[in-house]
Amino acid sequence: MSNRIDQLFAAKKNGILNIYCTAGFPELNDTLPVMRSLQAAGADLIELGMPFSDPLADGPVIQDSSTRAIRNGMSLRVLFEQLKDFRKEISVPVVLMGYLNPVLLYGIENFCKKCAEVGVDGVILPDLPMDEYESDYKAIFEQYGLHLIFLVTPETNDARLRKIDGLSRGFVYAVSSSSTTGKDKDMSHQQQYFERLKGMQLKNPVLIGFGIKDKATFDAACAYSNGAIIGTAFIRAIENTTNLDTAIRQFIAGVK
């Protein structure tokens, strides 16, 4: 069990806090400082956003952070350069989240190889179809020990959920409602869906994302899953801060 994501879930079953932050945000060279502060403050998992010009599954807050990161000069090339030695100081598992187009242009194999080289543990590519992954890319991801994490939603039926669970490695990313990131929807409406997920006893751990923003929503999600993912609320907390480390510590302390 060499993948850090697997090690994490083997050691900790509940209350796992995964924080999303766009790479190269708020400033180009903040990627590592943000990760350092997140680790120090107690985040269990870090999801680094690979900024894209047209992020379909994200709401305005995360899109704006992507636009800003791109303007700062962030790209896959720059990101891998920044991550070159990050494993010397960051031990929590790290997942890259982004969209297929920049990764395709970089080259899937090249991308997987780079991820393995620098010590990235998993990847989320919401617009990569499951079938295409299975037929064209799965072998490459596995060759480099890289976990691909798939999304499920309240509209995903049981049969498809089983198939996604079968292909997903590391964990399954359960989108809490039919929405883009950063949308407020009443969590109680999702209870039935969370119960269904829990009842299915998936082989993968489950992290719930979208709409998680504070202690109450985090705890509610954790009641049904192994943990939760916070993105939009975290971006908001650091976008205009003058002291990144303090803002991050305060944010994490407020959730945990």
Binding site: F52, S53, L56, P102, L104
Partner: peptide
Amino acid sequence: GKLGIIHASKTLLMQTEDGQIT
């Protein structure tokens, strides 16, 4: 344009060398 994905379709599109749609 170069091969890529725009609005959920694999097709030719105008993009930067980093894969951002222009």
